[in-house]
Design a protein around this nucleic acid. Structure first.
Lengths: 243, 243
DNA sequence: CCTGTCTGCTTGTCTGACAAGCTGATGACA
DNA sequence: TGTCATCAGCTTGTCAGACAAGCAGACAGG
């Protein structure tokens, strides 16, 4: 009986407007680059004050989905990069349980994209992947650069999978984890960090070999192993920081 | 020479305030559950109008970092899950959502959550899943209701997996696909649609059986089969519509 | 053809106002 | 003394009006 009551959805006006706008974008009515109706027009159309409209538009601008230019208008953001930038910045606001979930999710995404990439990768894709590995190998002593190449390796694989949704999801999970990975890689003593980096390069090479041969299942397994081994280090680091 | 000019970063006031607030949170000055100074107070402190402060606060509320309660105040959100949910949701917003990519992604997500659910599901979870199946079985003649129960089945499994990110991603991909599924189920002749529904119920039962026994790998396989078979129907429908 | 100016649109910001909701203090009543 | 209604003072939510600043196209003058 008590459970029958609805949450009494006193949702705010600007929330509702945000929902409408995101819905329009999701359904493709508003495409990237498109111009959003002006604030005044939206006021009239929605029957609300300019404040509410503005708060909705600003919210979406802050996260990088819209772009406002004074004197010109508001537009749907052209590239995801802007969004990702903002999102990554806030990645360190996460707590531990969420990080664990992210690792679990990433394991699955990476394994599957590796599988697909082994099937669909073009020779250009493979070359890009190889370049990333060489970059890593050349900078095992510089954690910063190393991580950059590491990231580009995984993104290149995601690209090669030819699935834009997977690519996107992978990029986001990895982006959020990046902060933690950075800490984990920098924290321990240098020689330990270098050993880990070299091991990592070897694992990456193994993945690439499987892909070059087009062995999808082997690529998946190699990637799974790699993620497990690398996130074991991350988990250990997390546990240590907890104390 | 020309390259020396800076982009003339005319950053907006509310953006600056957003940066300040996120900085405070990231550095731990503001901890989850803490109360943010009231709008008026922030106005005075920052020397800006209430509009700008409000836009900053609302933006962070919309992405789930803050929570505002009328008459009470604004607080730093307790669980960061809400933020990640929104973030992923919006990350996909600007993507072109190709049906094939969605199906591929969903296959992976569903299989993996089934695997995890078989491991972690409580008896309450299993009961919820079972109820959904019974609901489906009782409404094979009513596509609308049938789909509703179908959806609740998959979401219940996602819930049982105990991974909020997977749960969320699954809900999203399913949401994007829902329209197509609806069409596919309604379009063909009734008796064919019913046959498909009954087959679907049988597949769902098989998944549940595996989960009850705690056989994670079997649950994953059963789910994979189910998704493949059901999306085959969807693909066929899409192909027919293409012509 | 170039160039300044003007006009009308847009977003950015501020102010003042009111409604609605929470909280704690006050005070009347049993 | 204990209970409860009421009220004042805070909060956020929303609106309306105002002005500045910036963009773009029209248009006239060189």
């Amino acid at each position: 009986m008590l459970a029958d009551f609805k949450p009494a959805a006193r949702t705010s006006l600007s929330d509702a407007i945000v929902d409408q706008l995101t819905g329009l974008i999701a359904r493709g009515v508003l495409k990237p680059g498109d111009r959003v109706p002006s604030e005044k027009q939206l006021c009239r159309q929605l029957g609300v004050g300019r404040t509410s409209v503005r708060e909705a538009l600003r919210s979406l601008s802050v996260v990088g989905i819209l772009e406002s230019h004074a004197g010109d208008g508001t537009f749907v953001s052209g590239d995801r990069r802007r969004y990702l930038e903002k999102a990554f910045q806030w990645g360190l606001l996460l707590d531990r349980k969420v990080v664990e979930d992210l690792i679990e999710t990433r394991l699955m995404l990476e394994s599957q994209t590796a599988f697909l990439a082994a099937r669909y990768a073009s020779s250009a894709d493979l070359a890009a992947i190889e370049r990333s590995i060489e970059g890593m190998a050349a900078s095992t002593a510089d954690p910063e650069r190393f991580l950059e190449f590491d990231l580009s390796f995984h993104l290149a694989i995601a690209e090669a999978s030819q699935n834009s949704i997977l690519h996107n999801l992978l990029g986001m999970t990895r982006g959020y984890l990046q902060e933690w990975i950075q800490q984990a890689l920098k924290a321990p003593r240098p020689e330990q960090s270098r050993r880990r980096a070299e091991l990592s390069v070897a694992e990456h090479r193994k993945i690439l070999r499987a892909m070059k041969r087009g062995q999808a299942e082997a690529a998946r397994r190699a990637m799974t192993e790699h993620i497990l081994s690398s996130s074991a280090a991350l988990r250990k680091h997390l546990a240590r920081r907890r104390k």
